[in-house]
Design a protein around this nucleic acid. Structure first.
Length: 525
DNA sequence: TTGTGTTTTATTGCCTCC
DNA sequence: GGAGGCAATAAAACACAA
C-alpha cells in the first residue's frame, strides 16, 4: 500500500514535472515549424531525428506535430468558413480547407502518404525551397526527400519552376538545401528506404478517395500561382496582389490584397520610410518575430541552441522575449510557408535585382530557421559555450552540405551581431519583409475572420514591435552592422518598418498609407 | 498590479489501420 | 494489440487592458 502510494506519488511527481509546461525555445519552434512546413506527417524516423536535433523527445515532437496539425486544421477551418461566407468561388481555398479538414490522420499511414496530401503537396511544392532545420539534419543523412517527389507529381510545374528559380539563385541556402535532394534531373531520389516504400503506398481513407481529386484542385491552383509567378514576374509582393483575386475569383481578393498590401513592395525606394518602422499588423508580427528571434539570434548566436531546453537562466530569459513574439507568429509562420518563402525570394531578387539582398534575407532567415540548426552552425563561430550546454547538439554536424555560403554569412553576421542591438536591427528588417509577404496573406485572412480578436492580437504585436522598434531604432542609431546596413537598404524592409510608424502615430508616407489603407479596407471588408 | 483572454504544451481517450 | 493520429481537456505562459 505504502509502496504503491509512494509509487503513485512518484508518478505524480514525475507527471507534474512533465506536466509542467515548458515552452520550446524559438529555435526549437523554428525547427519544428520548418520541418512541419515540409512534412506535416513526419515519419518516426524523421521525428526521431528532429527530436534529436532539437533536443526534444520524440514524444514532444510527435505531440507538437499533432497539435500543429490541429492548429492548422483549425485555422483552415476558420479560414474556410470565413471564405465560404465571403466568397463562394473560392474553390481553391476551400479545397485546401477541406483537404486539411479531412486530412485527419484517421489513417496512421497518412504520414506515409503525405506526398499525396494536398497540404503536403502544396507546402512541399512551395516549401521545398524553404529551409528546414530538420532538413539539414536529414539532408546530411539523406533521409527524407519524399515530399519533393510527391510534389513533382502534382505540382511539378510550379514547384519545379520555383525550384529552378531558387536553384538558379543558388544563393539561398534553403534552396540549396532542397536542391540537395534533387538529382540532376531534379527528381528526388528516394533517400529513405522508408520513404521509397511510402511512395509506393496508396493513400488510404480520405486520401484514397479524394487525394487525387484534391490534388488536382490543388495542382490547378498551384499552377495558377506558378504561372503567375513565372510569367508575370517574381514580384510576388507587388504583382501577385492582383493575381489572387483573379485566380480565386474574388473571395481571396481581400485577403490576398491585404497580405500583399502589408508587404507591399511598391514603396521600395521611398526614402521617407524609416527602416525601423513597420506596419503594425502583420508585419509587426513577423517583424517582431524575427527581431526577437534575432534577439535570440544573440541567442542563436550566443546561445541558445545549445540551451535548447535546458530552460535555465540565461537562455530562458532571452527565450522568453523571443517566445512572446514567436508564439504569435508561429501560427502563421507555419501555415504560410510557401507564400512567404516564394514571395520573399521573388521579391528580393526581382525587386531589387540584387541577389545579395536576396541572400541577405535568406541568410537572415536561415539564421532563424536554423534556429535550431542554424544556431549550431553559427555556434561554430563562437557559441561553443552554449552548445556545451546541450550535449545533444553536435556542432560538427551542424553544417549541412551546401550551406557553406550561408553559414559563413551567418557566422559573419553573428560575428558582428553580438550586440543585441545590432541583432535587433538586422533581424527586424530582413525577415519581416521576407516571410511577411507570404505570411501576411494568411494573417490578413485571419484578421478578417477573427475580426476584433485578431485585431487585438495584431495590436499586441504592434506593441511588441513598437517596443522593439524603439530598441531597434536606438540600436540603429548607435550601431549598424555592415550586413545589416545592407539589409536596411532594401526597400521592402523599409516599407515594413514604416508600419511601425503608423502604429506609433508617426507620420506616414502617403504611398504607404495607401497600402495600409488598402490592407485595412481589404481586411475589413 | 491584477484580471482576463489567448496561445502553447502536455496528457488522456478514442479511433483507424496493419 | 501496437502504432499513429485526432480530439478534448487542463494547465502554464503570455499579452493586454483596466
Amino acid at each position: 500500500m505504502e509502496a504503491s502510494n509512494e509509487l503513485q506519488s512518484e508518478e505524480n511527481k514525475s507527471m507534474d514535472k512533465n506536466r509542467k509546461r515548458k515552452l520550446k525555445t524559438p529555435a526549437q519552434v523554428a525547427g519544428l515549424e520548418n520541418f512541419y512546413n515540409e512534412h506535416k506527417y513526419p515519419t518516426e524516423e524523421m521525428k526521431s531525428e528532429l527530436a534529436e536535433d532539437l533536443g526534444l523527445t520524440e514524444k514532444q515532437v510527435s505531440g507538437w506535430f499533432c497539435h500543429r496539425r490541429l492548429k492548422d486544421k483549425r485555422l483552415m477551418k476558420d479560414e474556410a468558413v470565413a471564405n465560404g461566407r465571403q466568397d463562394r468561388s473560392s474553390g481553391v481555398i476551400q479545397d485546401r480547407g477541406s483537404g486539411l479538414g479531412q486530412d485527419s490522420c484517421g489513417s496512421s499511414k497518412h504520414g506515409d502518404y503525405k506526398y499525396l496530401d494536398p497540404k503536403e503537396v502544396e507546402s512541399q511544392g512551395l516549401h521545398n525551397n524553404g529551409f528546414s532545420a530538420a532538413d539539414i539534419a536529414y539532408g546530411n543523412r539523406n533521409h527524407h526527400t519524399e515530399n519533393i517527389s510527391g510534389m513533382e507529381d502534382t505540382s511539378s510545374e510550379s514547384s519545379s519552376y520555383l525550384q529552378d528559380r531558387l536553384f538558379l539563385q543558388g544563393q539561398d541556402p534553403y534552396d540549396m538545401e532542397s536542391s540537395r535532394y534533387l538529382t540532376p534531373n531534379r527528381a528526388l531520389p528516394p533517400l529513405n528506404p522508408k520513404s521509397a516504400i511510402n511512395m509506393r503506398h496508396k493513400p488510404s481513407g480520405y486520401l484514397k478517395v479524394k487525394g487525387e481529386i484534391e490534388n488536382a484542385a490543388i495542382t490547378a491552383v498551384k499552377k495558377q500561382f506558378g504561372r503567375n509567378y513565372r510569367e508575370d514576374g517574381p514580384l510576388l509582393g507587388v504583382e501577385f496582389d492582383p493575381l489572387p483575386p483573379g485566380a480565386f475569383e474574388g473571395k481571396n481578393a481581400g485577403p490576398v490584397h491585404e497580405s500583399y498590401g502589408v508587404a507591399n513592395p511598391v514603396l521600395p525606394n521611398s526614402p521617407d520610410i524609416s527602416p525601423v518602422k513597420r506596419q503594425p499588423s502583420l508585419s509587426s508580427r513577423y517583424d517582431t518575430y524575427y527581431t526577437k528571434f534575432s534577439s535570440q539570434d544573440s541567442h542563436i548566436e550566443g546561445v541558445d541552441f545549445g540551451s535548447l531546453h535546458d530552460g535555465s537562466g540565461f537562455q530562458d530569459k532571452q527565450d522568453k522575449k523571443a517566445r512572446q513574439s514567436m508564439k504569435q507568429r508561429q501560427t502563421f509562420y507555419g501555415n504560410n510557408h510557401f507564400p512567404g518563402r516564394n514571395s520573399s525570394l521573388d521579391l528580393y531578387e526581382d525587386d531589387n535585382g540584387e541577389a545579395s539582398a536576396y541572400n541577405s534575407t535568406k541568410n537572415h532567415r536561415i539564421c532563424i530557421t536554423r534556429g535550431v540548426e542554424g544556431m549550431r552552425s553559427d555556434s561554430t563561430s563562437n557559441q561553443s559555450d552554449h552548445y556545451e550546454e546541450n550535449p545533444m547538439i553536435k556542432q560538427t554536424d551542424l553544417l549541412p552540405h551546401g550551406y557553406d555560403n550561408f553559414n559563413l554569412k551567418n557566422v559573419q553576421r553573428s560575428g558582428h551581431v553580438k550586440s543585441k542591438h545590432s541583432n535587433s536591427v538586422r533581424n527586424s528588417h530582413i525577415p519581416v519583409d521576407t516571410e511577411e509577404r507570404g505570411l501576411s496573406t494568411r494573417m490578413a485572412k485571419e484578421e478578417i475572420f477573427n475580426g476584433g480578436k485578431k485585431a487585438k492580437k495584431i495590436h499586441r504585436d504592434a506593441d511588441g514591435a513598437r517596443m522593439l522598434s524603439k530598441e531597434i531604432t536606438d540600436a540603429k542609431r548607435t550601431k549598424v552592422d555592415p550586413l545589416h546596413q545592407y539589409h536596411v537598404k532594401q526597400a521592402p524592409i523599409a516599407e515594413i518598418d514604416q508600419r511601425k510608424i503608423q502604429r506609433s502615430g508617426a507620420p506616414i508616407p502617403s504611398s504607404f498609407s495607401e497600402d495600409e489603407t488598402a490592407d485595412t479596407s481589404s481586411s475589413l471588408g
